[in-house]
Amino acid sequence: MTIEIANTKVIDQYIRQDRMPHIWCPGCGIGTVLHALIRSLVKGGYDMDKVAMVSGIGCTARAAGYVKMDSFHTTHGRALPFATGLKLANPDLKVILFSGDGDLVSIGGNHFIHAARRNMDITVICVNNFNYGMTGGQMGPTTPTGARTSTSRSGNYEPSFSIPALAAASGAVYVARWTCLHLRQLENSISEALTRKGFSLVEAISPCPTVYGRLNKQPTGLDQMKYYQTASSVENGADPMKVGIELNGKITCGKFVDIERPSYLEMAGFDKETR
């Protein structure tokens, strides 16, 4: 009897092998979220020539250089304007914005609310690690109150942003939040977000052990994953205004908003135009 081994590894066709291993720290969850995105693209059967990935600056934004599709690495916080321009210039493209919280809602916060208000046809995947990871773990608008970072050594005293609340209030049509441990749900959620017309946001909470977890009693990525395992609860349809995250507190996951609203391209009549 002969034994043959059937390998099931498909991810290697969609990432740039020559750039591996990537720069992300051991225990970081960005690779996991990128894996979920690629799986949903493969599952949805999208033509990779018709998919463009836009990202800004930061740890998460390095993902644009690691995927084997058209990608666009833009300036800090300005990923959404570039993605908007890309979508308007070529409406046939499927534009995916893969960036971090520091890029999307801190530096690019104004672009974020206006892209959501216009209901641009962009799928946004926001990897939230609660700080500015690449520059050394500075405190940002998403840092929970009380968290210690390199610029808030005795605890952050500012109230923090809740990304689902911001997106829902600005008019996004699809808002969901998952952690790096809810991987099947994250994949399904990204698949759903890719099919929606308009501004759809999936927030993925990711461990950042090197510069954030180490100062907040979660020194390894595994500790942060264990925290997600114990502290998270799935509440689909929860009120996005009530899903804020406190330091070491409960994480509410789920699909919060799924509505229909005319998108920017429909309002502007791009659909009718023959190109």
Binding site: I3, I5, A6, T8, M20, H22, T32
Partner: peptide, 22 residues
């Protein structure tokens, strides 16, 4: 398949051994 999808380094894969008739 959880190890495959949780791996941030894309390093894990699962293979099945197929038994063939000689």
């Amino acid at each position: 398949g959880f190890c495959v999808i949780v791996c941030p380094e894309f390093a894990v894969s699962v293979a099945m051994r197929l038994e063939k008739e000689p």
